[in-house]
Nucleic acid binder design. Structure first.
Lengths: 122, 122
DNA sequence: AATAGTGTGTACTATGTAGTACACATGACG
DNA sequence: CGTCATGTGTACTACATAGTACACACTATT
């Protein structure tokens, strides 16, 4: 999935909204804009990357609307979920060290730690 | 260390700068401000919490100046280091899951994971 | 007593963030 | 063939962020 790297936030939203629109006409710019609570002209500009991605709250609404992962969409917008920031800010040195350690680790290693923690192997 | 919770960014900086000033007069508001690259009046306002904490770059400079942990100082300012954000944004779902898992884990468990990863037990 | 340094009050500014409001041309469709 | 919906251009706005610049009164030093 090479192309994802070059995909902007706007183009990604447009692509997926258009795909949904093909089978459901309620996915027009106007109707989606209304449902997520912004002006249609604003969503149009977002989708053409004419303006920066919207706020975290609107991105979350978009993620739900388009059935995409919220953290992934936030990341495409250059943001990190505020609940994660809060967790890190409460124990900054601990989390900073761990995250920097994990920077160079492969996906499967991080997944495994997640699973081990969840399964209570600690 | 209860009081730390109620300590503001400004008060924390002021306390530590004043402590250093007692044994080294180069730690005046003016001289520290000059070294970190801001106006003295601005640092004065920061220390009295009259304005919001400064930018990440200035906080880092302050951390070095006062010999404090950068991530901890950033956290007190309500921020998270941009290098950590970048790491998370590159694999948002993986890191989001892990961090939320670790939210309720005790310090020693997180420390142990850090150590295990560093020592290559993966 | 002069002067050098200190902390702070007041006023101002540039840039970024996160949008709204309305008009307009085009396209779909019953 | 009229009207209803669609996407978008233009203009504008409120608030936040991250500071600067200068003047002033006080303190310490020599």
């Amino acid at each position: 999935m090479y192309y994802v790297v070059h995909m902007t936030f706007g183009k990604y939203i447009r692509d997926h909204r258009e795909t949904l629109k093909k089978i459901d006409r309620r996915f027009s710019v106007r109707q989606v804009a209304n449902r997520i609570g912004v002006e249609p002209a604003y969503l149009s500009k977002i989708e053409r990357d004419e303006v920066a991605p919207p706020s975290e709250a609107k991105i979350r609404a978009l993620a739900i609307e388009l059935d995409k992962d919220e953290d992934m969409l936030l990341a495409m917008a250059g943001k990190v979920s505020s609940d994660l920031l809060e967790i890190i800010r409460k124990r900054p040195e601990l989390f900073a060290d761990l995250i920097r350690q994990l920077k160079s680790m492969p996906d499967h290693a991080i997944l495994r730690i997640s699973r081990d923690v969840r399964d209570g192997e600690w």
